[in-house]
Amino acid sequence: MMLDVQELSVAFTDRQEPFTAVDKFSLQMDRGEIVGIVGESGSGKSMTAHALMGLIPRSRAAVTGRALFEGVDLLPLPREALRQYQGRDLSIIFQEPMTSLNPTMRIGKQVEEALFIHGKLSPGERKAKALAAMELAGLPDPEGLYRQYPHQLSGGMRQRVMIAAALVLRPRLLIADEPTTALDVTIQAQILDTLKDINRQEGTAILFISHDLGVVKALCSRVVVMKQGRIVETGPAEQVFHHPREDYTKLLIASRPSRKKLRGGGEHE
């Protein structure tokens, strides 16, 4: 087993009323698997992803439980030790690439950034790895883009740059936090295809966080449904979407816009 999360909880202590954002979240993931976490605002899905990446400041919240990555519990690791895992073993991409990319830094340098932290490579070696990652992320003409700045790229291309930067060290787990939510639907479809290709070619496991059931259904083999910090239901995607057991999952699926006409006063198929 690659990832074994046991009763992960995130409790914010920096406010008047202590607030549990994630309550006893457990999940096991094998290498090469694509698992989706789906939920609405406040479900704790993003907080779970942030906790796994060590992105929650310890001064603000207590993160408890265990998150074993290849047998090593990431949660108690000091910052420096955790940095050895971030990027190399597990990586994260976010919804809004424009705020995650540095606007004053050329694309190539940003893709290479993780290579400075992990190992000593020559500039030539770094560039070769960056170009390969950009190619993997489906960026056309990596050599030309290498010297460009984020503002010169479209939203979809920026997200591909983020994917390239996250993959430059070929991590075994990619955490994707609403990576296509800010994108147009045709661009979204292309990015999802790219993530599937990466999963097939490289065997990269993907933990995909989304509010969008359609996207999760298209990509993931297993699904975790969250609500208000807790897991409501979990199982194979096929089962959860077609034979949901819990009322909340049923409500989520029924709320999803479908080819069903709404008419004032009643619903008609």
């Binding site: 609405e40 605002s41 509010h211 969008d212 059931l213 409500l251 989520l252 029924a254 709320s255 999803r256 816009p257 709404l262 008419r263 004032g264 006063g265």
Partner: peptide, 19 residues
């Protein structure tokens, strides 16, 4: 809006249109 709210507001818009 979240998907469950989205469904409620769409229903409201459909009802208001008729009424």
């Amino acid at each position: 809006l979240d998907v469950t709210l989205q469904a409620q507001i769409l229903r409201l818009l459909a009802d208001l249109k008729e009424e």
